[in-house]
Amino acid sequence: MEIKPPVPQIPAPIWRNIKDLQEWEQTHQRRPEGDKHSQLFESVTEGIHSFPGGFVVTTVADAFLNWARKSSVWPVTFGLACCAIEMMATFASRFDVERLGMVPWASPRHSDLMVVSGTVTIKMAPMLERIYDQMPDPKWAVSMGSCANSGGPFRHGYHVVKGVDRVIPVDVYVPGCPPPPESLLNGLLLLQDQIAHFRKTGRRALPNPKVD
């Protein structure tokens, strides 16, 4: 009797996180359209851009304004938990963030960036939303640490929000528990690249399907 050797089978891929991905698609906050500039400004820039040769003006102005915006992003000191200690270490002497132009500022009304560092709890979420609303446009949000990304190690707790993107729209997610200052700096530099791609009407770059 011939015994056939086993045929190697490539196992079917096990999609473990499809449910979480669907949950994220449904629940995360999306940025409202047209949150950057007024209608008048947009119509003026459209007019200049459609003028023959006008694109030179808009692209140069764009590049200049985006350089100015990205070189002077002021984060509001919004440290919630353990990641706050690493955020403070990033703002301090060794991993200086002030050389990038980021001066940590306590008042949300004078800042551009909110680095949500730490676990967002249900009691804290309305406060976080209020601080985010007090920030003037254009504003960005960086979710630092796994607690802010998705709830982190406390995801299954009854008082923990499963990620800060359920409360505010987030631009950059920095993973880690806590992310060391090098990771946070990487995230902030990625944010600066995103800001540099602000297009002429002030709408943000659409997500690149190859990268995002």
Binding site: L80, C82, I85, T121, M124, M127, Y158, H159
Partner: peptide
């Protein structure tokens, strides 16, 4: 404002899993 349900979560995590979470009390 930072109640992260440590005491309830510890009832669902084993003795080998919890020490890393324990660090996050006095971080």
């Amino acid at each position: 404002y930072l109640h992260r349900c440590h005491e309830k979560l510890s009832e669902t995590l084993t003795y080998a899993q919890y020490p890393s979470i324990a660090s996050k009390t006095d971080y």
